[in-house]
């Protein structure tokens, strides 16, 4: 047993982080908020970097890596708040021509009949007739909803797991932002991070991140549906609760459009719905618990 990143996995994560910092830093993120729309050039670049074809065999033009590596890449996407139907396109690689290279943008019907980026996508997985546009809470995720979509038909496991990986990355971002702010913002003549009330919020942010991290990574290794359900619960909590606490640490500035915290929270909300019903995940776990108990 060696439940730690390998050197190759560390390098992969570092490489993706570096690519995204260069191509989708804060200025580009804020620019995207003001001028919504999918950046096709960036999409192709992601394709060239192997973002979508990561798990395809090398013979098929892919990178030939596994689910754990995909999870690390999507964690970084979540940390960068990278917009677009990334998970759907990644999962379509190999099945939909052009998806792996980033030429074709693929979206899919997620939990609750939610469809992201419908107007910009070239291909849609699932039935979207009668889809109605929502005024999306997340400025970086245009949303449609398919009326009467069966609630029971939850998204498939890998879709849920990669969504959880994105949630993990966003949770990491909120933790880093909260800590950064707590170290630099001064009140009463001291950094606010010197006060235990603030310090403890930051500590809990990290605890939730680390619990979500091991749950998501373990689910990537086992690909077990029960591990995936457990991972999504931990990751949703880390991202949503993390953004809320980060906002609290930011104080009044956290309530403004200008600071990025709200972008984290809104994306975390979207992904929590995309992953299907939380109740269903809890029920799946409860059922498995009874089976294990015998």
């Amino acid at each position: 047993m060696r439940f730690q990143l390998t050197d190759d996995q560390r390098d992969l994560r570092g490489g993706v982080r570096e690519l995204l910092a260069r191509r989708f830093g804060r200025e580009v993120l804020r620019g995207a908020v003001e001028r919504p729309g999918l950046d096709r050039g960036l999409w192709r670049e992601l394709g060239e970097a192997g973002f979508f074809g990561l798990r395809l065999a090398e013979a098929a033009g892919g990178v030939g890596l596994g689910v754990p590596e995909a999870v690390l890449v999507f964690e970084e996407a979540g940390r960068a708040l990278l917009p677009g139907p990334l998970v759907a396109t990644h999962l379509a690689a190999g099945a939909v021509p052009g998806a792996a290279t980033g030429e074709t943008v693929v979206t899919a019907v997620g939990g609750g009949g939610l469809v992201e980026w419908l107007d910009e996508a070239d291909v849609v997985v699932g039935e979207v007739s009668g889809a109605v546009a929502l005024r999306s809470v997340d400025p970086l995720t245009p949303l449609h909803r398919v009326p009467g979509a069966p609630a029971a038909a939850g998204p498939d496991d890998l879709f849920v797991l990669l969504t959880a990986a994105e949630q993990l990355g966003t949770a990491v971002r909120t933790c880093e932002a909260a800590v950064q702010h707590a170290r630099t913002r001064e009140q009463f003549g001291r950094p606010i991070g010197a006060f235990q009330a603030v310090k403890h919020l930051c500590a809990e942010l990290l605890v939730r991140v680390e619990v979500a991290r091991v749950a998501v990574y373990a689910a990537a290794v086992t690909a077990d549906p029960v591990d995936i359900a457990a991972a999504r619960l931990a990751a949703d909590e880390a991202a949503v609760r993390g953004a809320r606490d980060c906002l609290q640490v930011y104080g009044g500035m956290g309530f403004t459009w200008e600071v990025d915290v709200h972008l984290c929270l809104k994306r975390a909300w979207v992904r929590a719905e995309r992953g299907g019903s939380i109740t269903e995940s809890e029920e799946l776990l409860a059922g498995e618990l009874l089976v294990e108990a015998g």
Partner: peptide, 25 residues
Amino acid sequence: VRRRLGRLYAEFRALWRLTQWNVSE
């Protein structure tokens, strides 16, 4: 009741993974 127990099951599975992570480290 079922949902709370399901959540606790997820929690203790995660705590086991955290143990494996810390031990590997």
